[in-house]
Design a protein around this nucleic acid. Structure first.
Length: 126
DNA sequence: CTTCTCACA
DNA sequence: TGTGAGGA
């Protein structure tokens, strides 16, 4: 058996891109935003570990929840949800605060949208 | 494959 | 938030 370092599946950006369906350009962008990290090969290429595809998936689902990259950068370390559907967050006081703040901003936007909707609907007698 | 920049939706 | 292009 492998007693020492299990290197796992390392990959370059092209492979990570294919496995995740996220463009290379976007993967670099995520790294720029502090969401994704990579090691470098001797030739300067980005090298990703085997957990990278899962990390990218988590980034995608958090973006789909409407979070900004900045927020995701702080939330991501708490994300432990495995590969598929349900993202699981290891809750802690600061994460809870972040989520509550996000909900509050969402409620504010909803209120504003409802006011906009009301004003507009009134114009056609609804 | 890398970096950077400018521009744009 | 995400992309394309051009150049070193």
């Amino acid at each position: 058996m492998k007693v020492k370092s299990e290197v796992g599946h390392q990959m370059l950006i092209g492979e990570l891109s294919e496995r995740t369906g996220v463009s290379r350009r976007l993967l670099r962008y995520y790294e720029d935003q502090g969401l994704l990290e990579s090691a470098r090969s001797t030739s300067g290429y980005r090298v990703y570990g085997e957990e990278a595809p899962r990390t990218v998936q988590r980034i995608r689902t958090l973006l789909d929840m409407g979070l900004t990259t900045r927020t995701i950068a702080s939330v991501l370390p708490c994300a432990t949800g495995d590969g598929n559907e349900p993202l699981e967050l290891e809750m802690c006081p600061s994460l809870l605060a972040t989520i509550r703040r996000e909900l509050a901003e969402l409620d504010e936007r909803i209120d504003e949208l409802q006011r906009n909707r009301g004003a507009l609907a009134a114009q056609i007698g609804c």
